[in-house]
């Protein structure tokens, strides 16, 4: 009788704990906010069809500027975009390490639109929230916690809470959870292929790069230098060719390009400034942009054609 009593109590506590954990784990993905970045990351994790020739890393300018599906299907260069709305070099490093756990690409191409952004800027509220999008869809690892902590400047406990129990962070979404959330959970975003986000809007632009002004000269923050060096070192360790590149956008100046080119030359990194090849690519400012910072589908396809030739020549 006494034995029964002593067994029953812990069993009840255990059954509560198990049920609690099960419900918690079931609910958590529903509460995690979802957007295109989530689809990009999920697709990459699910992707196991072939080993990649080229892995593209970078922020939204890469996600919408390079059509990995076209590159694969039309040119036979197996590729994938592995980016997020915000991908500071420190986050790119984390994405690269995460990608190398399942893939051994021959070439890694890193878009550098955030090369001038100090890491502190990512800690302000609106950007900070966008940074969260870069980590939310990623698999739970100690690297994720460390990288998130490093980028957000928070303490280990906050980072662990964010990474381990996002339900506690995003529980306030109860008032905006809808069928859409569940739909997205069950494979929403069917338009995103191999991480490429197609933007169809057409917005004519005036390009800073071909204008009269040189633009303001900027400096690359030391933490970004560290992250870029770590990216280069990781690629070298794994025998991967590394190419930094800049996608064509309206808001990118020659002064910025000059600083990046000098930096890349100084460190001996390969750098492809696509804004130097706008005519070759065939970019039409009237039809190929979605907004000041992103190419639309037409621009992305032209850029992809150019990149395909570039990659073929390199190989």
């Amino acid at each position: 009788m006494l034995k029964k009593k002593y067994i029953r109590g812990p069993l009840k506590v255990l059954s509560f704990a198990v049920c609690f954990a099960a419900i918690f784990l079931l609910l958590q993905p529903v509460f995690i906010p979802k957007n295109e970045s989530s689809a990009v990351a999920n697709q990459f994790y699910d992707f196991a069809e072939e080993n990649l020739d080229v892995l593209f890393l970078g922020a939204s300018q890469m996600l919408s500027g390079v059509n990995a599906q076209k590159l694969t299907e039309e040119y036979g260069i197996s590729s994938h975009n592995f980016g997020a709305g915000v991908q500071h070099p420190a986050i790119t490093l984390y994405y690269l390490r995460e990608a190398l756990k399942t893939q051994t690409p021959k070439t890694v191409m890193v878009e550098v639109c955030e090369i001038f952004d100090p890491i502190e800027d990512l800690r302000d509220a609106p950007t900070g929230e966008r940074v969260a999008w870069s980590y939310l869809p990623m698999k739970l690892t100690s690297e994720k916690i460390n990288s998130y902590r490093e980028v957000t400047g928070g303490n280990r406990l906050q980072a662990a809470e964010f990474c381990l129990t996002p339900l506690l962070v995003y529980h306030s979404r109860w008032n905006s959870i809808w069928v859409e959330d569940v739909k997205r959970l069950c494979g929403g975003y069917p338009d995103i292929k191999r991480g490429y986000i197609e933007l169809t809007r057409v917005a004519p632009q005036t390009l800073d790069y071909i204008g009269d002004e040189e633009g303001e000269e900027k400096a690359i923050p030391p933490e970004n230098d560290d992250a870029l060096s770590a990216i280069a070192a990781t690629c070298e360790e794994n025998g991967i060719a590394l190419v930094f590149f800049k996608a064509p956008v309206a808001r990118w100046t020659r002064a910025e390009s000059k600083v990046v080119k000098a930096y890349m030359a100084e460190h001996g990194y390969t750098y492809l400034e696509l804004n130097d090849h706008l005519d070759e690519i065939g970019i039409d400012p009237e039809t190929d942009f979605c907004n000041t910072l992103h190419l639309n589908a037409s621009g992305a396809n032209k850029t992809t054609d150019f990149l395909a030739n570039y990659l073929k020549k390199r190989s």
Binding site: K12, S15, F16, C19, L167, L168, V169, H171, S172, W174
Partner: peptide, 22 residues
């Protein structure tokens, strides 16, 4: 009872005003 305890606990976890959003 188990279902009741779980419901109460998750009520606080989900509908509770705590965390960075509040």
């Amino acid at each position: 009872r188990l279902a009741f305890y779980l419901a109460l606990t998750f009520t606080i976890l989900i509908f509770g005003a705590y965390g960075s959003q509040y």
